[in-house]
């Protein structure tokens, strides 16, 4: 079973605004029946103010598709069309307290249904601008189409290149075989062969010189600052549950934290740490392992 948040489960078991909307004046139908997810979003828009007075959905799809649809309708009701168009798929995922990486496309479908419905209201034609492929990197939710396009656009040659440009493969590294296969395929189209021992592109900085901080690489200081930022962002949510989290130390890719109060010993601690770890990986673009420690055990 998926690791769905309580909010996802709530919106699935008790969907808000399910069904068609009376006197709807905007409809967006998106999704792909072959992939098993499709959504019809209907809006009742006030022609004077462009405020969305009512929204409803009908969804053919899994638990998170139904929950994403339900969350979307809750978010946009009362917004003007222009405000609603600023809603991103991340907003939908955040509203649901996160979605598993394999399920982020459900939130993307929600945003696209909204765009399609607004286009319908305005008499425009909505055009889908993204194509989704097989999910390759589960740590950073990068699919095959994205990797292929990036390899073509930047003439990438190695797995390391792909990781530098897309983050794919930068986490647990178990998808490297899949990335190599995509590289081999794209390079073959250009009449080249994938060479696992090729230098990454552009040529890496020789190891004997100390690398200056570049756009891609963080200095130690920047890195720790970012880690602090992420931890600070999650603290209010934990404090609301009478808990807290403290950053103790950073050792290589291990981030040592101390769970305080209601968080320590809580059955949800594992999930909390998993969530923090995921956010750290996304912020830093590298594999991070969050380790819970007792404060006195460190640095002693």
């Amino acid at each position: 079973m998926w690791d769905y948040s309580e909010t996802v489960k709530d919106h699935f078991y008790n969907p808000r605004n399910a069904g068609s909307v009376d006197a709807a004046n905007a409809t967006g139908d998106v999704g792909s029946i072959s992939c098993g997810d499709a959504l019809r979003l209907q809006l009742k828009v006030n022609p004077e103010t462009e405020v969305i007075e009512d929204a409803g959905f009908q969804t053919f799809g899994c638990g998170s598709a139904i929950a994403s649809s339900s969350a979307l309708t809750e978010i946009i009701k009362g917004m003007t069309l222009d405000q609603a168009l600023k809603v991103t798929n991340q907003d939908i995922a955040d509203y649901l307290d996160g979605l598993p990486p394999e399920k982020m496309h459900c939130s993307v479908m929600g945003r696209e249904a909204l765009q399609a419905a607004v286009a319908d209201y305005r008499g425009e034609t909505w055009k889908d601008d993204h194509e989704e492929g097989q999910l390759i990197c589960k740590c950073f939710a990068i699919d095959a189409v994205m990797i292929e396009d990036t390899i073509r656009a930047n003439n990438l040659r190695t797995v390391e290149d792909v990781t530098n440009y897309t983050k794919a493969g930068g986490g647990c590294s178990s998808c490297h075989e899949g990335i190599e296969e995509i590289l081999a395929k794209v390079l073959a189209e250009q009449g080249m062969e994938f060479d696992p021992e090729a230098n990454s592109w552009p040529t890496p900085i020789p190891t004997e010189t100390i690398p200056a901080p570049t756009a891609g690489k963080l200095t130690n200081l920047q890195r720790i600052k970012k880690i602090e930022d992420v931890i600070d962002q999650v603290r209010p949510a934990l404090q609301a549950d009478r808990g807290d989290i403290e950053l103790i130390d950073v050792q290589g890719n291990q981030v040592l934290v101390h769970l305080v109060g209601a968080c320590s010993g809580c059955q949800m601690a594992g999930m909390t740490l998993g969530g923090v770890q995921q956010q750290l990986m996304e912020a830093l673009g590298e594999f991070i392992h969050v380790v819970p420690v007792q404060r006195k055990a460190v640095g002693g």
Binding site: G31, I33, A38, D128
Partner: peptide, 25 residues
Amino acid sequence: RKLSPYWGDNGPLENPEAMFAPAYA
């Protein structure tokens, strides 16, 4: 089925695949 865009009040829509043909997203 009550949530499904292919389903009407009492059964599947007539010609359901034509009644709901979403844009690929």
